[in-house]
Every structure is written in C-alpha cells, then in structure tokens.
C-alpha cells in the first residue's frame, strides 16, 4: 500500500536527514513520525541499508592490467619496473 501524502512529505526528507542536512527541529519531528509509522520506518531502514550495501560492495576499481596499460600509454612504464624491483 503506498504511504499517505503526509508520509510522502516525510519520506522526501529522509535523504537530507541521512546526510545530516535536515534542520534540528525537523529531525526530531521526522524521528517522531518514524517511531509512529511502521511503513515509513521500513522505507527509512531499507534506504539506509541500500546506501550501506553500495558503499561496501558497489565500488569498481581499475583492474591491475588497466593500470599497467595506462602507464605504458603515458610513457611511464619504467616506473612500473621500479615498482616491481621495489617489491
């Protein structure tokens, strides 16, 4: 069931709340609403968890081979040799 209009207004503010950008008074009111509204509580919890999961598992790094090829393209390959010598 979609949340009520009043809930929608609170849900619009959860990102600001999570980022520490919501005014103090509104934070207290939002917390109060979350304590009283199980649906919004779920949306809040799972939004926070979504962000946590992406922070932990969502990163993509350049593969080691890509780094070496980049050094070559930029004529820095001798530095790669220095690295392997320093290991």
């Amino acid at each position: 069931m979609p949340p009520s209009k009043r809930c929608a207004e609170w849900l619009d503010r959860i990102s600001l709340y999570l980022d520490g950008e919501l005014a103090e008074q509104l934070c207290r009111e939002l917390e109060q609403h979350l304590a009283e509204c199980p649906d919004c509580h779920v949306v809040f919890n799972t939004t926070r968890r979504t962000i946590e999961l992406y922070r932990r598992y969502g990163r993509v790094s350049m593969p080691e081979g890509a780094r070496e090829r980049l050094f070559r393209v930029l004529n820095l390959e001798d530095l790669l040799r220095d690295e392997s010598g320093a290991k």
Binding site: P2, P3, A8, D39, H41, V42, V43, N45, T46, R49
Partner: peptide, 16 residues
C-alpha cells in the same frame, strides 16, 4: 513512491 514494504534491512550479511 515506495510500494515494497518488506523490512529486509536487518537480514544478516551472509544472507545478503
């Protein structure tokens, strides 16, 4: 508009 209201936030990480 949130429609899915299953609370999966606290499933253990291994489960996820």
């Amino acid at each position: 508009v949130p429609r899915e209201l299953l609370d999966w936030c606290c499933l253990p990480e291994e489960e996820l």
